[in-house]
Design a protein around this nucleic acid. Structure first.
Lengths: 185, 185
DNA sequence: TATGATTAGTCAAGAAATTGAGTAGTGGGA
DNA sequence: TCCCACTACTCAATTTCTTGACTAATCATA
């Protein structure tokens, strides 16, 4: 029920092809939602059937043709409805937290490695998102951009994504340090 | 594939009934994983069938009988394997981030209300988790507890949960303030 | 004395997400 | 010149998760 709205949101101020959307929703790059390409194309089909967006074939030379999707008025209305409707908080479901919880059953060294690897991944992703944010706000200071820009949504969402990954990296390193300390003493 | 391990982790140092587990994995109270009771009971059945845990009927007076589950050696081994195996990072999928991203299509006032409501929920949950952490560490300072306690896993996971909700609340309030400022100017 | 909350679950239907493989053309590097 | 990566998708099977309803007893409250 929510990938629908994530797709509509991504198409709010531009047209994108299925493939471009699949890059935007990629696990390693998405700032606000993730989905596999298979899931995306399936959902795009449903959204088109429901009249929330329209697809146009674009003929290309030198590479496969693509279908570019755009929001319809109905799609925009649906997004407006969605943003105003209460939804229940998204639940936490993180495999790393399960691993940390199960620390007693874990081999300390491999668990520490898991945490350090994830810390590195999150650091990289936080940096990537920081670069995206910088690009979005251009040369303005953040406060000016947020006060005056005409589309701040992606910036708000990107900021949350960056916070998440900064925290994740920090926590992973903190937890790894504690476990390391416990094994050496 | 991961609810399995979350359940095994929860049963690592104690026996719990399905109902107790359903409270632990409740959306409003879970610090490290969430699942509905239906999903839980289904998964508990599979885990028992796979020999990763055993259930014992406990007869009670004055209330329905219950089944209490305990880890088997195979279950503990599976947890050890899981904690050492690399897993891909959990993806971000948060309805609020989608709503923020779609700010352009949103009615400002209702979106602001959504953000403020969620901020309040996250504040409450962060407080709840803070109380749990305090209970876990007893009267010791955190550093002493983490260095000397025999089961720090739940504390590590709970800390991440608290960070998540502290951040969520902070971001929601920040985003709401920006949107409010943009509507009044 | 009826009403709702709490304990302790079960059943079934459907939607959402994952896993794994496959197609087919183009461009670039060893 | 061969192989790999990239663009741009599709198909099928399976697992996971959600939604909504239902049973049935006890306890506290109004």
């Amino acid at each position: 029920m929510a990938l629908r709205h994530a797709l509509l949101a991504a198409l709010l101020d531009r047209e994108l092809s299925g493939y471009q959307l699949s890059k935007l929703f990629d696990l390693g790059a998405s700032s606000f939602w993730h989905a596999s390409s298979q899931q995306l194309y399936a959902e795009l089909g449903k959204l088109e059937a429901d009249g929330l967006l329209t697809g146009h074939e674009v003929v290309q030379q030198g590479r496969p043709n693509k279908r570019v999707f755009a929001l319809t008025d109905a799609g925009r209305d649906e997004l407006t409805r969605f943003t105003g409707a209460p939804t229940k908080p998204t639940s936490i479901r993180d495999d790393l937290m399960v691993k940390a919880y199960a620390e007693q059953a874990a081999d300390p060294d491999t668990l520490i490695k898991q945490l350090e690897d994830r810390a590195a991944q999150s650091r990289a992703k936080a940096e990537f998102l920081a670069a995206q944010l910088e690009k979005l706000r251009g040369d303005k200071p953040e406060a000016d951009f947020l006060a005056s820009a005409d589309n701040v949504g992606p910036y708000l969402a990107g900021t949350r994504g960056k916070m998440y990954h900064d925290d994740q990296a920090e926590w992973c390193e903190w937890a790894a340090a504690i476990l390391r300390h416990r094994t050496t003493s």
